[in-house]
């Protein structure tokens, strides 16, 4: 399996990353080398094997429905790049 530069651009768009033209050939070749490595997986006979999402066979513990957090806006927004009137600002969003 190997991918083209165009596919890499599409993936980059999904991941919100930019790929400069001059980076593309090297990125494509390292990407394809990694996919070659992945090909080894196909040899494993995994039909019917339950995927293992978590290393421990545990189940979710549940939190009581209690409000434990107080307003931390000032501290949390101290690290924000751009806020106004308590809101985070981003370039205009069009629906």
């Amino acid at each position: 399996m190997s991918v083209s530069g165009d596919t890499i651009r599409e993936i980059a768009q999904l991941a919100r990353l930019a790929v400069e033209d001059d980076e593309l050939p090297a990125l494509t070749s390292s990407f394809n080398a990694i996919l070659d490595l992945f090909e080894q997986l196909q040899a494993a006979p995994t039909d019917g094997v339950e995927p293992m999402a978590n290393p421990l066979d545990a189940s979710q513990s549940l939190r009581e429905d209690v409000v434990t957090e107080t307003n931390q806006r000032e501290a949390l927004q101290a690290v924000a790049p751009l806020t106004e009137d308590g809101l985070y600002l981003v370039p205009r969003v069009v629906d």
Binding site: I11, A15, L27, F31, F38, L41, Q42, A44, T46, M52
Partner: peptide, 24 residues
């Protein structure tokens, strides 16, 4: 990028799911 690709539609089974099966 690699991770996005491995989860993307059409490749999930061949990569991510397969890898989690091999993990078992």
């Amino acid at each position: 990028l690699v991770g996005t690709y491995a989860l993307s539609s059409g490749y999930y089974d061949a990569y991510y799911k397969k890898a989690q099966q091999v993990r078992r």
